[in-house]
Design a protein around this nucleic acid. Structure first.
Ligand SMILES: [Mn+2]
Ligand SMILES: [Mn+2]
Ligand SMILES: [Mn+2]
Ligand SMILES: [Mn+2]
Lengths: 225, 225
DNA sequence: ATTAATATTTAGACAAAACTAAATATTTTA
DNA sequence: TAAAATATTTAGTTTTGTCTAAATATTAAT
């Protein structure tokens, strides 16, 4: 008979796994100690300590001085936390009428609540959403995400038409900027002019003509029509 | 100008305050070290340590060897945690369709999520409930509860009629027993016979005739009609 | 190819929250 | 009222997660 030793993952360990998950998603397979430290607001030495513990638990692959990557088990654990984070964000916005710039910090707490049944009931209650309020994909039960085709708004050409589908930066400041300029997920955008000097552009967003800097267009994911 | 130093209360501290709150509510004003230790599944020495810390923070009144009681600040902090616990239990039962015997452990986690706005929005979303799924009162924003008049079913006399309004024991086992016997909050109950030997009684619950032991009638709060 | 700069790890310390074992105080019982 | 029993506190450890400072390794620059 098998003894199923189910591993306890602490809140802190979950946060490290999540950081490695997000960093690995953008950059290379191997994530650096400093990158984790920056993201998690900890010192590099603390990161090294934690990485060793995670390696001991077979949640990460770790070679001294060579960075760290998630094992399959670590990837699933991290994705499950991300799944919970994003489901709770949907709940907060859709059901409790929070604004999209208010939900992240609360979701950072809710994502650590442990109950598989809670997650699956919440998922059902929300109608099995696939995207969170910021356009980020919600991993499924097995930790898999289905990515959609998208480009950065800054990459489009004059007169191209597109729909806003996601953001790179989801900081409160950026979200408030978007609110102020009436740019939201689902907004229809057409590029009316591009300034080659500073790469700013004039766009038509759902009928409103506005000018946006390159920092903005570099942080908006769109789907070309 | 005033410097408002807002106190950070840890998860562990919240649990101790809650234990003292519940114990003080039933028994005397002063709660014993051992009673807390029992309730919280810790050793008495750990309780002493924590009590000292809480006294330092002005959350409890503590005199060595004489037990502990909540200060006004401690009472409000504890009541706020209880409020959150019970609101989340309502959410889990009313919105996510959990059974009343499944929600306690999840609420034990959710009660520690820190966000005043979340609590007030959740409260509104649930329609400002005053009782949780087990009939326990939900403290308001200021930590006050309005108690209703109620008696123990075991205290009633032959032929008395009443409505079930609450429970003393909310353990999963007891809740499942009640489910099996179709006893729920709001059930109409009439006492058909009482056995003086063992204090068991035959009752009519919403049309079903059943026999219950004294342990059961001692754990059911009712409102006499 | 050295040196300088940067990144990472090690060593040692600390705070929080728990524990065990021993000491002390309070309460009960005879 | 003096033991005996019980309750509470103290002293000393442990684990987890963090930190600073110092040592070491890697990478970049001359
Ligand atoms: Mn978020
Ligand atoms: Mn998000
Ligand atoms: Mn409960
Ligand atoms: Mn309850």
């Amino acid at each position: 008979m098998f003894i199923l030793k189910l591993m306890m993952v602490t809140l802190s360990e979950e946060n490290y796994l999540k950081a490695i998950y997000h960093l690995g998603r953008l950059g290379s397979l191997s994530v650096s100690t400093n990158a984790i430290a920056d993201r998690i607001n900890a010192k590099a030495s603390s990161v090294t300590d934690m990485i060793k513990k995670l390696a001991e638990k077979n949640l990460v692959n770790y070679v001294k001085y060579q960075g760290v990557s998630l094992t399959e088990q670590g990837r699933i654990t991290a994705a499950t936390v991300v799944r919970k984070h994003r489901l709770w964000e949907v709940f907060l916005v859709e059901k409790l009428n929070f604004r999209w710039d208010e939900v992240h910090d609360i979701a950072e707490q809710l994502e650590h609540v442990k109950s598989e049944k809670l997650v699956s009931k919440l998922d059902a209650y929300l109608g099995y959403p696939t995207r969170d309020p910021h356009g980020d994909p919600i991993p499924d039960k097995d930790g898999n995400i289905k990515s959609i085709e998208k480009s950065l708004l800054s990459q489009l050409r004059l007169n191209d038409s597109c729909v806003c589908v996601g953001l790179i930066d989801s900081s409160s400041d950026f979200l408030k900027y978007l609110d102020k300029n009436k740019i939201a997920l689902g907004s229809n955008i057409q590029i009316l002019s591009k300034e080659s000097f500073d790469d700013s552009m004039t766009i038509n967003v759902d009928g409103n003509i506005i000018n946006i800097s390159q920092q903005i267009s570099n942080n908006l994911y769109v789907k070309i029509k």
